[in-house]
Design a protein around this nucleic acid. Structure first.
Lengths: 220, 220
DNA sequence: CAATGTTTGTTAAAAAATTCACATACCAAT
DNA sequence: ATTGGTATGTGAATTTTTTAACAAACATTG
C-alpha cells in the first residue's frame, strides 16, 4: 500500500523472480506460503523476502504468512504488467523472429503492434499475425500508431541510425538486444539491455574461476 | 598481477562492458585513456574504474593513464576468453538457431561442437557447419567428446529432463535461456541465465515508474 | 476464550559497494 | 636536471544492501 518513494534497483531486479516462483506455486494449488519457505525454494533468506515485500507496504499476515494469489497479483501490479504498452520490433533475424514469435508480450505489459526489417525477402511475411514491414515505413507507422517502445534486434552497426530515427519518432523506451550501449547516446531514455555476449563472457569467467579454485583444493 | 582472492560479482559484471568499450577505442586507434575519460564515455565514475582495475593489480601508469591495448588484453585474460570450452547447444527453435548461428563463441572462450534437437524435421540440418543431431545421441556424443558446457534453448517444460541427462553426462556448466531456475535443482553447477522474460518485466517496471514520476513532476 | 506457537513488520547491526580524497609516481617541457 | 602538471593507486568515509533480532499481531488448539 504505502509505496516507498524510491525502490532500489536491487529489489526490482528480484521481483520477476518472485513473480515466477509465485506463479508456479499458484499453478500447484498452493495458496499460502511463509517467507521462510519461499526463501528456501528460491535459495535466498527469509529476511530478504520480507524486506523486499515491505518496500511496498507488506502483504503478509503475522503468524500466517503470505497469500500466494494476492502476493502474485501485487507484484504483477508493482511491475505494471497490466499495461499494454505499444511496441514495435525492428530486425527480423533469427533472434528478432524468436522474440517476435514466442515472447509473451501480453503477460508482460506489452502489445506488439509492428515488425520491421529492411530485407525485402522478409517484408510481407507474417509473424504472430503481424505483417513485416519495410523499415522505410517506420516514420509513417509511428505517426499513425504512436508506439511507446522499440525492441531492437538489429546488428550493432545499424543501431546508431535506427535508434536515431526511432527517437525522433518519439520513442524513448528500448528493449535492446544489440551489442551496443544505447543509454550512452541519449540520456532521457529508458533502456533495458539483453546483452547475450556479456552474459556469455561472465559464464566464461565463472568457469575459469571455478576451475582454478577446484585445482587449488585438489592441491591441498 | 596480484590477483585478489575473491573478486566481487559486481566487479565481474562490469568487465564485459569495459571490454566492449576498450575494443571500440582500440578499433578507433586510440592507444591511451585515463580513468576519467573512460568513465565519461561509459557513464560511470573514474573512481569506480580505478577501483575495479585495482582488484587485479592495477594496469595503469601514474600521471599517464591506461594503455588501451594492454588493458583490453588484461580483461580478456581475466575473463578467460582465451579458453576453448567445448559446448553443446540443445534446442533449435528460433532462439537456439540464432544463438547457434550468430554468437561469437570463439571470441568468448567457447567452442561449439554439437547441436541437438528432438524434432526430426530439424535433425540433419547444418548450422555453422555442424549437423543437428537427435537429442537421443546426447549421451553417446558426450561420452566421446566430453563437452564442458551446455547451452539450453529448450522450453521450460523440457528443462527438467534434459538437464538431468546432461548433468549425468558430467556437464556442470550451463548457459540457460529457459524461463526456469536451474541453480535451484543442483548446487554444484555453474549457471548463467539469460532470462529474457525477466528483463522484459523490468523494462515494464521502469516504464511505469518513469511515467508515474513524469506525472508527478507535471503536477508541480 | 485463554494460552501457545508461528510469522510478520520493523529496527538495528553487519557487510558490501561506491565515492571521496590525497599522497605518490610518472611524464613532459624548459 | 629540475619543476610543474597529471592521473594513478589506495586508504578512509559514505552510502547502499543484506542479514540478524525481536516485539507485536494473528492463527490455532484445547
Amino acid at each position: 500500500m504505502a509505496r516507498k518513494e524510491n525502490i532500489s534497483s536491487s529489489v526490482i531486479k528480484r521481483l520477476p523472480r518472485y513473480y515466477r516462483f509465485l506463479g508456479e506455486l499458484k499453478a500447484q494449488g498452493i495458496d499460502r506460503i511463509s517467507s521462510k519457505e519461499l526463501a528456501q525454494k528460491m535459495r535466498t533468506t527469509a529476511s530478504q523476502v520480507r524486506q523486499d515485500f515491505n518496500c511496498f507496504g507488506g502483504f503478509g499476515q503475522q503468524g500466517f504468512g503470505y497469500n500466494v494469489e494476492q502476493l502474485y497479483n501485487e507484484i504483477k501490479q508493482i511491475l505494471g504488467l497490466n499495461n499494454k504498452y505499444k511496441a514495435v520490433l525492428v530486425g527480423v533475424g533469427n533472434l528478432g523472429r524468436a522474440v517476435a514469435a514466442h515472447m509473451s508480450f501480453e503477460e508482460r505489459g506489452f502489445d506488439l503492434i509492428g515488425i520491421f526489417d529492411k530485407n525485402p525477402s522478409i517484408i510481407g511475411e507474417e509473424i504472430r499475425g503481424i505483417k513485416v514491414q519495410s523499415t522505410d515505413n517506420i516514420e509513417e507507422f509511428c505517426g499513425e500508431h504512436s508506439p511507446k517502445v522499440a525492441i531492437l534486434c538489429i546488428p550493432k552497426a545499424a543501431v546508431g541510425e535506427v535508434s536515431k530515427r526511432l527517437y525522433s519518432c518519439g520513442i524513448k523506451c528500448y528493449w535492446n538486444f544489440s551489442h551496443y550501449d544505447l543509454s550512452v547516446a541519449y540520456d532521457d531514455v529508458v533502456v533495458q539491455n539483453v546483452h547475450m555476449s556479456d552474459s556469455l563472457m561472465i559464464l566464461c569467467y565463472k568457469i575459469s574461476d571455478n576451475d582454478l579454485s577446484n585445482h587449488s583444493t585438489e592441491t591441498q
